[in-house]
Design a protein around this nucleic acid. Structure first.
Lengths: 167, 167
DNA sequence: ATGCTGATCTGCACGAATTGCGAACGAGCA
DNA sequence: TGCTCGTTCGCAATTCGTGCAGATCAGCAT
């Protein structure tokens, strides 16, 4: 994503107004590697501009996303996350803490895909899940919560793909 | 996913009761290639068992999923979808109609991933998006699916005046 | 500077997808 | 046939966003 100054120019060049709220968000999102949610950005923004509306945060983020200056991500973590990194990349999510990191994968377009059967693929996004270094240190006590059933089948759901050790 | 009969045995063997509601859902989900949502299954179930609760549908589906007999998918289409196919596979979603199809990709675990930096990857899921053969035939007038879709690549829905020129 | 005017912002209600909870119900065993 | 505890049901509550409408303000013209 471009710098706050560049975004300001782009907005103005396109007939969009540059408000203090937008500028604040430009700054908060620029270079933000944390893949924040709208709520998180709202909290940060509120510190510097009490009274800013959550509605405005959503608005501005979707605007930036529709301009291609920001990517909005659905990583299955409940809320949409925003990523200023607009490169062609993918993500890893930590099962335990929910932390997200950008990863680069090459050769995706060369993968043999079976079953497409006429489907024209335009985009492929890979979502890796696992345990981040920090959580791995802490230990194993954090087991994925089980529902009511104590003794279910042994079969571990589907832990097959991308068996670690890849970089 | 296993057959309704097998599931019945498994449930009982695990001390879970086999209710008519559960059996109905076993049948509705078994071999269902449509990746239905809970709401859709609820509708189908209601036809055969008026009065069944949506709550029960959710309950049973999550139970099956936590037993590894069913995979629950978040494909960014708004609602969780359920897939009786527990093989190691991935999905393609049609941008236009929201249709989902299973695809098989080999060599995923051999992809070079850059930026992991200590992250232990346990699983990788690939989500392809594009246009299904049926929608491709129809042309461009096909309307997007009825699900709310967070994607940013398309028009900004309503009142956006100056923004229209951007995307 | 000052005024205009339409783009923005804010607050609130609404909507979709789940989940929490407690009371009524019923599957499976004695 | 009866008991008991797992299930079901229905409704409230929650989470994440979006639609709306009136109050405001950025940016251009005067």
């Amino acid at each position: 994503m471009r710098s706050p100054a560049e975004l300001t120019e782009i907005f103005r060049a396109n007939g969009l107004k540059v408000t203090p709220q937008r500028q604040l968000l430009f700054r908060l999102v620029h270079g933000n590697e944390c893949h924040p949610t709208a709520e998180v950005l709202f909290a940060r923004a509120s510190e510097q501009m009490p009274g800013i509306s959550l509605r405005t945060v959503y608005q501005t983020l979707t605007d930036l996303a529709s301009m291609g200056e920001l990517r909005s991500l659905d990583l299955g973590t409940g809320a949409t996350r925003f990523d200023p990194n607009t490169d062609d990349h993918h993500h890893v999510v930590c099962d335990r803490c929910g932390d997200v990191r950008d990863v680069y994968v090459s050769g995706v377009e060369r993968l043999p895909v079976d079953g497409l059967d006429g489907f024209e693929v335009r985009e492929a996004s890979i979502l890796f899940t696992g345990v981040c270094p920090r959580c791995a240190e802490v230990g194993d006590e954090a087991t994925p919560s089980q529902h009511r059933n104590p003794s279910s089948t042994t079969n571990p759901t589907t832990t097959n793909t991308a068996k670690e050790k890849l970089s």
